[in-house]
Design a protein around this nucleic acid. Sequence first.
DNA 1: TTCTTATTGCAAGTTTATTGCAATTACCAT
DNA 2: ATGGTAATTGCAATAAACTTGCAATAAGAA
Lengths: 124, 124
Amino acid sequence: MTRTRQAVLALLQRTRHPISATEIFEQLHQEKVAIDLVTVYRTLHVLKDLGLVLQLDLHQEGLARYELKEGREHHHHIRCQICGQIEDLLLCPLKKITKLIEQRTQFIVDDHTLEFTGLCPQCQ
Amino acid sequence: MTRTRQAVLALLQRTRHPISATEIFEQLHQEKVAIDLVTVYRTLHVLKDLGLVLQLDLHQEGLARYELKEGREHHHHIRCQICGQIEDLLLCPLKKITKLIEQRTQFIVDDHTLEFTGLCPQCQ
DNA sequence: TTCTTATTGCAAGTTTATTGCAATTACCAT
DNA sequence: ATGGTAATTGCAATAAACTTGCAATAAGAA
Ligand SMILES: [Mn+2]
Ligand SMILES: [Mn+2]
Ligand SMILES: [Zn+2]
Ligand SMILES: [Zn+2]
């Protein structure tokens, strides 16, 4: 754990919303932390492998976002189509349906992704 | 509707699985249809705007796939993590949960994406 | 046919992310 | 502390998917 990696981890800790590599890079530079964008990518990769960070690939965004895992349970997200705000949905309605899908398709289901989009209260 | 566009549409009609722009390009070239990759992208854009084609952005694929809309209802997909096979799931378990999410978050929910991944019968 | 507009191909550009490699840094044993 | 070794970093180049500018071509209407 170098100070560079700790800076990225600390930023993720104080950031409430899922953040992209470029946003981490820009934020750290504003805070006078010299770090290359490549290093941000590599650090995120490491943190992901360590199980400290989750990577989110939200629909239609074309970039990856990251959030601290930190004991958080499996959950999903909702994103405002106007302002881009992303909020946690601390629920998963898919446990029962997964079994139905396994029966119907004969697949073994490993994982799923679920995401809602809409208008947040401020943008309505 | 030029013959180029009809060739893309016809390929989508005879293809059973969601297909990417590059795959369309390569398949048409094998069939001796001269078409630029840029034209494939622009054609898919047009067909999407006409409501004839659906764009899918499956998780972790990093590319868009397209399928004929053709009266098909709203549905979701399951993809095999080994062979990449994609199968339709002709169901949507999210109608009720959407109302719950609107109540909890005060968002107006416009849309959702849902995708399952796992192992298909052949790859198990 | 002729005129006008839409479509196409080629080249170049964007964006997000990855890779090669040499320079630097951190860490461990002495 | 010091030196050696391996991990980490920055820079430059590369990759992959997709988009844009623009001139050439093709389609469709009069
Ligand atoms: Mn979250
Ligand atoms: Mn489908
Ligand atoms: Zn879930
Ligand atoms: Zn649905």
